[in-house]
Design a protein around this nucleic acid. Structure first.
Length: 578
DNA sequence: CGTTCGACGGGT
DNA sequence: TTTAACCCGTCGAACG
């Protein structure tokens, strides 16, 4: 092993080491706060909803004065934090029981509990009392005691973990992410509705009451003319497919990449029709009216919404904003948007996890160019598809053909993902760098493997499912660790931004909300990219915070291993990306 | 009338 | 240069 113990991540995150306060509700709905010290509960206090924000703010201020932090332990930031933010209160740290339990249930299964998942029912402080009355008139714990008990179970689970230090780091990062998610929604992404409207008019033409916009209607007419079918239905996949066949276009689907392979007068207007219709239905005026208010797009982020630890979103399609609409993102007057994304995050994470010094050396500032320089492949484009093939497990096509070359040049990195794939193929579970464990294969998958000897068809099916699972676990370790890096980046960045001195004036304070007025704040996050909305005179400080946080995230996860996470940072207008 | 599913296309 | 990982939202068709 080339790596010494100095490479191991430190056991405690910089945003850790805090006093702890548990917040919960009694069955009657009253809030209870309990302060915890090393010995256990050190104080208990009832609170009304009205008093809560000011009381939380006071605890935060006291902790800050004492030069320490305070960690709020609650059922979930999604329930507790938006109300605090609306009241102008920011918290520095939390422990999100719901998110942490999801991690612990897979990472440290409870041996005393034989039920699926091994954990109690969901902690839900807002649930009606009926949920807790299953025992009739038997004594039952209050909802608040269940909150406290859940936290104690989680602490006990951590103590049983193979590497409690890393897992604690993951729980802290996940919880910090839950705060960021609530803050992103509260602050919103500055969105210029007039600019969006102008883009729509340019592409789709004028809006027509009760009908499709002008250019869509014209394009539809052109498609029908080319088909020689004035009544052709363009919005029903089966009907469109039949109409294409009647016109002599032999396609098996109506997907754009297959259509593009054919030469027929209908192809060009049809592809244009599909493009316009997509824009109109997914991000048209209806989307604008529903999701943009007061110059802010406020999507719902769902931390931990993906098994790998990536975030999902629900509502607003925050993670699918088409590149062409990015132009509608406009800073407030006197403010700027800072857009930063990491170059080739996943392969860099793989190099660091595998301690592959050669791959790390090739990474430099452009990893794909480095791969070319290593002699593995001839062009940057080849390097890119080869690397994606290595991470996703492709075996065919150009990508699959190039993967063996990477295996020759970067054996350590490839051995890590290959081992993860083998583990998945035989039904095992794999783990990210900090200890997020992949879900076990489904009962249907196990059943298919059991039947593999029943016949040729069953055997083929079992093999295919095994390979599918192998590709999943192969990708899980890298995508999941990249998500951990991103959480560490976000967590450190929100702390750095909060420490930047506010500017005296902010004419747009109302839109951003009380917590985010007058100082740089996170406005968008997407896997490996952040946007920060900053007063112009704080732009450089904010950009430095973004870079500094990326460096800190790399050190936190990978210690002294020499891997860089270079950022493309753009202050002001955003441009198209690679 | 509802709900569910497959096809499609947007993101990383 | 569709081959592969993880997603979400919309639509129409099919089903109940």
């Amino acid at each position: 092993m080339a790596s010494g113990s100095s490479d191991a991540p430190p056991p405690v995150a910089p945003w850790d080491a805090a006093d702890r306060i548990v917040l919960g509700r009694t069955p009657g709905g009253a809030i209870v706060a309990v302060a915890l010290d090393r010995e256990g509960a050190a104080g208990r206090r009832p609170l009304s909803d009205a008093e809560l924000p000011a009381w939380v703010a006071l605890r935060e201020a006291e902790a800050a004065r004492a030069g320490r932090g305070v960690r709020w332990i609650w059922s979930g930031s999604a329930e507790w934090y938006p109300r605090l933010l609306a009241a102008g209160v920011r918290v520095s740290r939390c422990h999100d029981l719901r998110l942490c339990r999801a991690i612990l249930a897979l990472a440290v299964p409870d041996p005393a509990d034989t039920r699926d998942g091994g954990w109690d029912e969901a902690v839900d402080d807002d649930a009606p009392d009926a949920l807790f009355e299953i025992g009739g008139d038997a004594p039952r714990p209050s909802a608040f005691d269940r909150t406290l008990a859940e936290y104690e179970r989680q602490e006990a689970a951590l103590a049983r973990a193979a590497d409690p230090g890393r897992l604690r780091l993951l729980l802290a990062a996940e919880s910090a992410g839950s705060l960021v998610a609530a803050e992103l929604r509260a602050a919103g992404l500055p969105w210029d509705a007039d600019r969006h409207d102008a883009l729509l008019r340019t592409e789709l033409g004028e809006r027509i009451a009760g009908g499709t916009p002008a250019r869509i209607a014209q394009t539809a007419a052109a498609v029908r003319a080319a088909l020689g079918d004035p009544a052709a239905s363009l919005d029903s996949q089966p009907k469109l497919l039949r109409a294409l066949h009647r016109a002599g276009v032999r396609v098996e689907s109506t997907s754009k990449w297959e259509l593009a392979e054919h030469d027929h007068p209908v192809i060009e207007p049809l592809l244009e029709y599909k493009r316009l219709m997509r824009l109109y239905t997914a991000n048209g005026w209806a989307w604008l009216a529903e999701w943009v208010r007061d110059g802010r797009f406020r999507p719902v982020y769902v931390p931990g919404g993906v098994v790998t630890g990536r975030w999902a979103s629900s509502g607003g399609g925050a993670l699918q904003i088409p590149r062409g609409l990015r132009d509608a993102v406009r800073a407030d007057p006197g403010w700027v948007m800072i857009d930063a994304d990491v170059a080739q995050l996943e392969p860099r994470v793989l190099a660091a996890m595998a301690r592959d010094e050669r791959m790390a050396a090739a990474a430099g500032s452009d990893l794909y160019e480095g791969v070319v320089a290593s002699g593995a492949v001839a062009t940057r484009a080849e390097a890119k598809v080869a690397m994606l093939g290595a991470l996703y497990g492709s075996t065919t096509g150009d990508s699959g053909r190039l993967v063996p070359r990477l295996r020759q040049v970067f054996p350590r990195a490839m051995a890590l993902v290959d081992a993860a794939a083998r583990e998945g193929e035989r039904g095992g579970q794999v783990s990210t760098w900090l200890g997020r464990v992949s879900p076990a294969p489904s009962a249907a998958w196990l059943e298919a493997q059991r039947r593999a000897s029943d016949g040729a068809a069953d055997e083929q099916r079992a093999r295919r499912l095994a390979r599918d699972q192998g590709r999943f676990t192969r990708n899980f370790v890298v995508q999941g660790t990249a998500a951990e890096w991103a959480l560490a980046w976000l967590a450190d960045l929100r702390a750095r931004l909060a420490a930047i001195p506010p500017v005296p004036e902010d004419h747009a304070a109302r839109a951003s909300g009380p917590v985010f007025a007058r100082r740089p704040h996170l406005a968008f996050f997407l896997h490996d990219e952040v946007m920060v909305h900053a007063p112009a005179e704080r732009a450089e400080e904010a950009a430095d915070a973004i870079r500094g946080a990326a460096e800190a995230a790399g050190r936190l996860l990978f210690g002294s291993f020499p891997i860089a996470f270079p950022l493309d940072v753009r202050i002001g207008r955003s441009v198209a990306k690679d």
